[in-house]
Amino acid sequence: MTNSKSSSTADKRGWMLISAAAFAAAAAIMNICLGASSVTLPQLIRALISGPDGTAAARILWYVRLPRTAACLMAGAGLAVSGAVIQKVLANNLASPGIIGINAGAGLAVATCCAVGAYSAWAVAGTSFLGAMAATFIVVTVARKSSASRSTVVLSGVAVTACLNAVTQTIITVFPDAALASVDFRVGGFSSVNQSRLLPASILILAGIAVIITLTNELDILSLGDDTAQSLGLRVTRTRNGMLTLAALLAGASVSFAGILGFVGLIVPHIARRIIGNESARLIPFCALLGGGFVAVCDLAARMIFAPYELPAGILMSFLGGPFFIWILLRRKEHQP
């Protein structure tokens, strides 16, 4: 009786993972095919077979739409998995990559980069990644020097973020050109993505997600609390810091080409948990698929709503994500006794 119930739950969760994969695939195909010049599915298939040297449509697909869609999928997957890991590690459902200094570190690095006149896409991507990682390193080091507990990491993140944002605002005030040059990065979007920037970040994101998937049992043990986790044989501080570093790697690689997309790392793990539960072995791949599909849909909407003008995807995500999140919170309250 128990076994049949367990297997039916497992089947249901399996179907949910398949559905998430189908959603991500459908969102990707729509993102590729729809836009200022639409492409039909047969044209897409022909272009994929013939390569980029065929028709104008094939060139648009290979050089514009495919990198952009891949960027949406990668950024969405990276940020959503990063958010899920951070929320689990800190046992705080309001945590997101921003809480460990990712956005503040990347923002400061890009503002500095622009202030010294390094406007190239590679400079922005490289420094934003390094800035995000450096900020996380400071947050984790400060936390480790005190007690390395969950709350210390959060408090350390808040303090470091405040300091870095203050420096960023100072730079922007002193160098107004830096504010203008970094505005695309700060709102987030995919209009300037290209293959060469995307490739190294994608390798990092895919490798990071693969490593996290092998560590999902550790993530679950960690969320039982420090004493229980240690008594089960887990080296808590090392695992927590390692997980936060992996989460920073994913988010840092994502913001390096997509800019700051604040809501994905917070809202997607929430939705994913409600659909598939909190068990990391299913939650992490589900987040990756849902996050990728969500960002691809947002990017498509950002291109279509005011066509031929294009909204940055980051702004649209906040427009959609904020009310949706409020709706989730209100709905939860209605269901509480």
Binding site: A91, N217, E279
Partner: peptide, 27 residues
């Protein structure tokens, strides 16, 4: 951990099923 099991004083209420929690004792 293979020789001593421990139930701490303040136990969290994790967002997992009972079966999963108990399985984690095998970690």
């Amino acid at each position: 951990a293979r020789r001593i099991a421990y139930l701490p004083q303040s136990r969290s209420v994790p967002d997992v099923t009972v079966g999963r929690l108990v399985l984690q004792g095998r970690f």
